[in-house]
Design a protein around this nucleic acid. Structure first.
Lengths: 115, 115
DNA sequence: TCCTATGCTTAGACGTTCTAGGCATACTAG
DNA sequence: CTAGTATGCCTAGAACGTCTAAGCATAGGA
C-alpha cells in the first residue's frame, strides 16, 4: 500500500500543518499520520520536511510547543496553534484557493456552463 | 491594477506552460501574458521564472523552439509542444488533481453530505 | 529624442522539500 | 534475553524552482 504517495508542493506544508493543529494539538509524528489518514495515504510527508516546518512555524510564533507524555509513556513535543497561527492559516488557505482557482482556469477552460 | 498577483507554487509552472502551449505555439513573453489573461491577472509569472522554465522543458525534450518574426517585426523564439510534452502534461495535470484533491480533504473537511 | 511595450538572457539569492543518516524508548514475539 | 517493530525526535546537506535584478535589443508613438 501507499506506493502512490505524492510529493507535497513546496509552500503548502505550512498550511496543512496549521490546519491539522487547528483541529487539535498534535506532535510531529501525529501530524504526519493525520495527514496520511485524511488523504487516504496520498500525502506522506517525510520527517525531514515535517520537523523543519514545525521549527519554522515555531520561530514565527505561529505555533507553541510543549513536552508531554503520550499514552505509551513516551515523550512527545506537542504543538498547538497560537492566535497568530490561526490568522496565518486563514491567509494561507485564502492564498491556496486563489491559486488553485487560477490553475483551474488554465488547465480546465470553462466550457460555458449550460444555461 | 494587478497588485494582487500571487506567487506560483514551485513545481506548477511547467504544467501551466505546457498547457498554454497545447492550445497553440507561443513565445515566452506571450505565454506570460496568456497566463495573466486566463487568470484575470492572478498569475503574473516573472521572466526570470518563465525563461528558465522553458529551458528546462526544452532540455527535457518536452518542447521545441524556433525563431520567428512576430507581427511587429521583432524576433521571437516560438515554443511548441512535442509528443513527449503532451504526455508529460497529462501526468502533471493528473498529479495536480491528486494533490489539490488531497489538500481539499485536509482544509475543508467533508461535512457528511446531507442524505 | 525620449519613453513605453515588446522580447530575450542570465547570475545569484532564497526558501522549501527531500535524502539519509543518527538517536532513544516501549512493547511484543521468540 | 534478545531481536524486531512502532513510536518519537533531530539535523546536515543536496536538490530544485521561483524570484530579484540586472542587462541587452528593437519598434513605434509622443
Amino acid at each position: 500500500m501507499s506506493r502512490d504517495a505524492i510529493e507535497v508542493l513546496k509552500g503548502t506544508l505550512d498550511m496543512l500543518v496549521l490546519k491539522i493543529l487547528e483541529d487539535e494539538p498534535q506532535h510531529g509524528y501525529g501530524i504526519t499520520r493525520r495527514l496520511q489518514l485524511l488523504t487516504d495515504d496520498a500525502l506522506q510527508v517525510d520527517e525531514g520536511s515535517m520537523y523543519p516546518a514545525l521549527y519554522r512555524l515555531h520561530k514565527r510564533g505561529l505555533v507553541e510547543a510543549e513536552w508531554f507524555l503520550t499514552d505509551g509513556n513516551r515523550r512527545a513535543k506537542i504543538y498547538s496553534l497560537t492566535p497568530a497561527g490561526r490568522t496565518q492559516l486563514c491567509k494561507e488557505a485564502a492564498y491556496w484557493h486563489r491559486f488553485s482557482e487560477a490553475v483551474g482556469k488554465v488547465i480546465s477552460p470553462v466550457p460555458d456552463a449550460a444555461p
